[in-house]
């Protein structure tokens, strides 16, 4: 299990680092194999930072991230188990090299002894899992492939390592609608193969489609979390409700009610279990059990 416990990220800003800016404020969440958790937030919510901290690309300022109870130490062993896919597939490839290089890097670092034929078989297997024909993508340069193909190839790259967890940060936001859904379906496939996926997104309809659990982040803090059906079907925090209300749908037009700004949850606030498994940030009431 990959567990985040009260993870915090602060940056020093201003002249001489005099002020601190809290990007992520006490975020706790669990990721278990065979489950997709969507981490939902708007720009500045800290959702990408959470993903980067899990991947060890950004150091943690406070709290802890543990894998099966042991503190995370980014390095080869860790990356064999926890992998990531990013938002911009075009920027993930070194433009001067062929796309095969992202796979080759894995081979050099993790499978130096593997024979050529065996490796090719392994690559073919991963490409198969992301439904890419090897002849279509291998030996090409990044600019010769579409965003969807590049993104699926990056997922195939991660699969070469047989990871247990995958952080997918806005992986569909640069893709067209007609290819986006295929990448989402792929995440669902991986989940059924036992992978735990953290699906970071700003798009609620995608989170709703693909995940079992949803965590809503607002200004670096979790404001609501729980099973996707409960969070989306019965939003308890005004911010979640507002987000859901703003999502354009094909089934209904927006009503004419003007939006009220969402007030900050008054302090001190904690995550409260409002119904089984469904947590919402509130000012604690004495009769409710606080968990954070």
């Amino acid at each position: 299990m990959l567990r985040l416990d009260a993870v915090t990220k602060t940056y020093r800003v201003g002249a001489f680092g005099g002020r601190t800016l809290t990007a992520v404020d006490g975020v706790s969440l669990d990721l278990v194999p065979g489950e997709v958790v969507s981490l939902i937030g708007e720009s500045g919510s800290g959702k990408t930072t959470v993903g980067r901290m899990i991947l060890g690309l950004t150091p943690v300022s406070g709290g802890s991230i543990t894998l099966d109870g042991a503190p995370v130490r980014p390095g080869k062993d860790y990356y064999r188990q926890v992998q990531g896919v990013f938002q911009d597939p075009f920027s993930c490839y070194n433009p001067i090299f062929k796309v095969d290089r992202v796979l080759q890097m894995i081979r050099e670092e993790y499978f130096p002894g593997t024979a050529g034929a065996q490796w090719e078989e392994k690559v073919a297997e991963s490409l198969e899992a992301v439904r890419l024909a090897p002849a279509l993508v291998l030996g090409k340069y990044p600019h010769q492939l579409s965003g969807g193909q590049l993104q699926r190839l990056l997922i195939a790259r991660a699969l070469l390592l047989g990871p247990r967890f995958l952080v997918a940060d806005e992986i569909t936001s640069m893709l067209d609608a007609s290819t986006r859904i295929d990448v989402l379906n792929l995440l669902a496939d991986l989940k059924s193969r036992g992978l735990g996926v953290l699906f970071v997104t700003h798009d609620l309809s995608l989170g709703n489609y693909v995940s079992e659990r949803a965590v809503v982040l607002h200004r670096g803090r979790v404001v609501e979390s729980g099973p996707t059906g409960l969070v989306f079907g019965n939003p308890l925090h005004p911010y979640t409700a507002r987000l859901l209300d703003s999502v354009p749908r094909l089934t209904a037009r927006w009503d004419g009610v003007p939006q009220e700004p969402v007030p900050d949850t008054p302090e001190p606030s904690v995550l409260v279990e409002a119904e089984p498994g469904h947590f919402v940030r509130r000012v604690p009431a004495p009769e409710l059990r606080s968990v954070s």
Binding site: S178, R180, S205, N208, Y209, G229, F232, G233, L244, T251
Partner: peptide, 12 residues
Amino acid sequence: LISSLPEVGVRY
């Protein structure tokens, strides 16, 4: 195109 769009408010 329209049938490829996931919607909120729908249980998949």
